[in-house]
Nucleic acid binder design. Structure first.
Lengths: 154, 154
DNA sequence: TTGCTCCTCACGTCACGTGAGGTGGC
DNA sequence: TTGCTCCTCACGTCACGTGAGGTGGC
């Protein structure tokens, strides 16, 4: 879970994974029957926090998740087994997407270094491959430790 | 659908998307009731070819798809709405995965060119950035048209 | 005729949602 | 006491699978 923060007026700071809603409130926010929320928990689809007395406490993220389940079951007509599987696949997509973004950032950095180095060599009229930091060239042998994807962007 | 080919002994060449099985055979291969196959078609989950007389003809790919549906419904307990959604997400994953592979291949190509060019400059003792093809350097201004992701590969 | 195909209709089963019913602590 | 919480049990509904029943062409 993320730890994004949100300020409500100037008084209270609430992280979105903090349990704040009791079941009746969470159910209303998600437009579900409270009993349905208990059922989803029994199925392992949602895991609200508990107060010391045992009362379920749902977070913003929990409510968001409930709404996503609601969309899949009510609008698409999916059953809970399908919802579970979709959550798994979405995690995969998320992970892959993040890898791709990280790769693109890293590549842009390297590309800039290479460009800078070529520019330097052009200027100096002499090709030296001494380490040059920061922002220097990576020695060719180390380069082999990278796989460098390129994406023609527009 | 792919157009992979398979040779059976030396006589017949069958593409995997060619309709070859009538419904009773396809149903047996997929371990399903024939009526279930008709139902899936009505739901748009599968689209077998038809003979001129109207008889359904299922391909290898169709049977494979039926087996995947069977796994999702029988083993995971998913309903058909969930199966549809999972197919969509898997298409997305597939596409993203292909993009990633293509990007990595393209990057490796560029990396090799850059390395070769650096080597050339080092050897000639002089930095020239004249176009040098094939396998030559991309002029810096054109380079900006690329986004070059890097992935630290083990 | 037999065994397949096509189709539609109907029924049994099961998952899911929800209500009831009884408990306990602010 | 009221209104919430907790829990379990049970019922209604609906999707799905499958069987029946009737047709038609190798």
């Amino acid at each position: 879970m993320a730890t994004r923060r949100r300020r409500t007026s100037t008084r209270i700071e609430v992280t979105e994974d903090r349990g704040v809603f009791m079941i009746s409130v969470a159910a209303e926010l998600a437009e579900m029957h409270p009993q349905t929320l208990r059922m989803y928990e029994a199925r392992g689809l949602i895991s609200p926090k508990r107060s010391p007395k045992g009362t379920r406490l749902y977070s913003q993220d929990d409510v968001e998740r409930l709404r996503r389940i609601q969309a899949m079951t009510a609008e698409l007509g999916m059953n809970l087994a399908g919802v579970e599987r979709v959550f798994e696949l979405e995690r995969q997509l998320e992970r892959m997407s993040r890898r791709m973004e990280a790769a693109e950032r890293e590549a842009e950095r390297l590309r800039a270094h290479m460009e800078a180095e070529l520019e330097r060599m052009r200027r100096e009229g002499r090709a030296e491959l001494v380490p040059y930091r920061p922002g220097g060239l990576v020695p060719a042998k180390d380069l082999k430790r990278f796989r460098i994807p390129i994406d023609r962007a527009g």
